[in-house]
């Protein structure tokens, strides 16, 4: 028998520090598989964020730098401008990318930085213990929206993929989900497309990945996947918002 599924080379052996059932691990594996498939592991520099995935530099078997909170797209810009032939990606959560780092992500996309952004949207702050994120759904209860998110004072959840796809130099923008095998297969395809865009030097690419945070949602991992399907996907529709063909 032949091994048809195993640990990609672009992941180290270090066990993930994420809570049971957290989708970060799936997202890590998909990115790593794509790097393996393009055979670019040894020519890749990753930028990890502040948040639960702050330790991603231990998990990805590629050169990594840990940026300040929200600044990963700026740090990645610095790297890519020096090494235009390296593969550069950022891995960011919703607090990082859609709150504190909104300026950096918008302008990296607007300049068309030839980097790939992996954006984990789980509608909550994980590492700090479950506070409201810019992507927290209306009515969703968190530590800092204890009576539910009220759009009158807290605004509506930000749709980053849609927002960024209004920018002319954003070459590939998509939203995927990791709640079931069929969606995971689609997510992988999308991540592969995003890195292909970078390899082809077509400009900025971002995949927004709807993910669960069972611990801070207060749900079991299986319930969390269901909650994502029933609550997040209707508000954050899946699909491609921008493709290189539209840019050209």
């Amino acid at each position: 028998m032949k091994k048809v599924f195993g640990r990609p080379e672009s992941l180290t052996e270090v066990p993930f520090t994420y809570c049971p059932g957290c989708h970060h691990g799936i997202a890590h594996r998909l990115v790593a598989e794509v790097l393996d498939e393009f055979k670019v592991r040894e020519n890749t520099i990753g930028v990890c964020p502040v948040g639960c995935s702050v330790f991603a530099y231990l998990f990805f078997n590629v050169d990594m730098i840990c940026a300040a909170h929200g600044r990963a797209p700026a740090t990645a810009t610095g790297i890519k401008r020096v090494k235009p032939d390296s593969i550069v990606f950022t891995y960011q959560g919703d607090g990082d990318l859609a709150s504190i780092g909104t300026a950096e992500i918008v302008h990296a996309a607007n300049r068309g930085e030839n980097i790939t952004v992996i954006f984990i949207n789980n509608a909550i702050y994980g590492m700090t213990g479950g506070q409201m994120a810019p992507t927290t759904l209306v009515g969703q209860v968190t530590q800092t929206s204890p009576y539910g998110r009220d759009p009158k004072t807290m605004g509506y959840p930000i749709k980053m993929a849609e927002m960024l796809s209004t920018l002319k130099r954003a070459a590939y923008i998509s939203r995927v989900a990791l709640n079931k095998p069929a969606n995971i297969i689609k997510a992988k395809k999308s991540i592969k497309k995003a890195f292909q865009v970078q390899l082809d030097k077509k400009g900025f690419s971002m995949v927004e990945i709807l993910s669960t945070c069972p611990t801070n949602w207060g749900l079991s991992p299986i319930e969390a996947s269901k909650w994502l399907e029933e609550n997040m996907i209707p508000y954050f529709p899946l699909g491609e918002f921008r493709t290189p063909e539209e840019v050209a």
């Binding site: 028998m1 048809v4 599924f5 066990p15 993930f16 095998p181």
Partner: peptide, 19 residues
């Protein structure tokens, strides 16, 4: 059947599949 759905959903990359 070796469909690998289990491995695909495993957040800890703890499952290998052989066929």
């Amino acid at each position: 059947t070796g469909c690998a759905f289990c491995a695909m959903t495993c957040p800890d990359v703890a499952i290998e599949v052989f066929k």
